[in-house]
């Protein structure tokens, strides 16, 4: 007798393998992109099955949503390039011998990894035990948020730095060589567009801000919320409500860095009331967490949107 839960796990695993395989081995770029987005959705379900609801939310918003939008951007770039008369570059595929050797080695690797994973025994290490005992009496109710913003705040701080660094890298490329905008405003706007945006905007704003607010006590947080708000920005960018500009306005620059800046400031300021950086004070810790997390949310949303936009700045477009 097979339990229904196990059957679901089995279907999920088969789906993951099948979709991932057809995504990375498929011929066309568009096909691979769409399959990869489906892979992200299945991954979100898997996280939910593995008792990681925070990850499920993040994967659905980032893995399946924003990565998909970025990949579709790349598809569009290739498509416009082909339309412009450029020959599709035919890469020379590796020979059969190489393929067979690679396949053999990969199968060996999979077998080895699986064997290692089976023989692994899981138990609490010192860090996990500490996180568990300290986390129970912590003023933040969501254990993942506790780790992200308190116990291992360094990681989150440096992660914000990586995010900003990726954006700076893209901006250097844009400055170096200006390419035509991928999403020029459409000459005729579909009639249902404005009503759609009127409905979608408050819903997405509410869901995004709720995720931020709920993040301290239940699944959610700055990353999920930031990704959702960035998705709203992508919608505005695609419909011409936001148009690319050649320079970033001071306000946009401020929003891009405020997460990292406020977090770093707090890290230094913590030395006043404690001996270690990133230590929360006894009083007003909760409001400080909310303030930092809100700044992180804004920065994450703006950074992801600018990564999608592929321009130095954004300005309000004309709404006809």
């Amino acid at each position: 007798m097979i339990e229904p839960g196990f059957l679901l796990d089995l279907l999920l695993c088969l789906g993951l393998l099948g979709i991932a395989g057809s995504a990375v081995l498929s011929r066309g770029q568009f096909r691979a992109t769409v399959l990869f987005m489906v892979f992200g959705l299945l991954m979100a379900l898997t996280w939910a099955r593995l008792q990681a609801p925070d990850l499920a939310l993040a994967e659905a918003a980032i893995g399946a949503g924003l990565t998909g939008a970025l990949l579709l951007n790349a598809c569009k770039a290739t498509y416009t390039r082909r339309q412009a008369g450029e020959a599709a570059s035919q890469d020379d595929a590796p020979g059969t011998v190489f393929r067979l050797v690679a396949a053999g080695l990969s199968i060996l690797l999979a077998a080895g990894l699986a064997w290692l994973m089976y023989s692994l025994t899981v138990a609490d290490g010192p860090a996990a035990a500490m996180a568990r005992s300290e986390g129970e009496s912590h003023f933040l109710g969501n254990p993942v948020t506790v780790v992200l913003l308190d116990f291992r705040a360094y990681d989150t701080l440096l992660e914000m730095a990586v995010l900003l660094l990726a954006l700076i890298g893209v901006h250097i490329l844009i400055r170096h060589y200006r390419l035509p905008d991928l999403h020029p405003p459409a000459p005729v706007s579909p009639p249902m567009l404005t009503p759609l945006l009127t409905v979608a905007t408050p819903l997405m704003l509410m869901a995004g801000l709720y995720l931020f607010w709920a993040g301290s006590q239940s699944p959610g947080g700055a990353f999920q919320s930031g990704a959702l708000l960035a998705a709203l920005g992508v919608l505005y960018r695609l419909t011409g409500r936001l148009v690319p500009t050649g320079t970033a306005s001071p306000g946009l620059r401020l929003i891009l860095v405020i997460g990292l800046a406020l977090f770093s400031l707090f890290a230094c300021a913590a030395l006043i009331w404690s001996s270690a950086p990133l230590q929360y004070p006894e009083t007003a810790a909760y409001s400080l967490v909310l303030l930092i997390e809100f700044a992180l949310t804004l920065s994450i949303a703006a950074t992801l949107l600018m990564l999608f936009s592929g321009s130095l700045g954004l300005a309000r477009g004309q709404t006809s």
Binding site: Q51, L66, L71, A128, A131, I300
Partner: peptide
Amino acid sequence: EGVDAIPQAMVLTGIVIAVSLTAFALA
């Protein structure tokens, strides 16, 4: 002992890093 939050937080960080790297690589 129950779900361990540290790997979950690490993976959450990892997902965001992965999307920023993907964006940079696509650019």
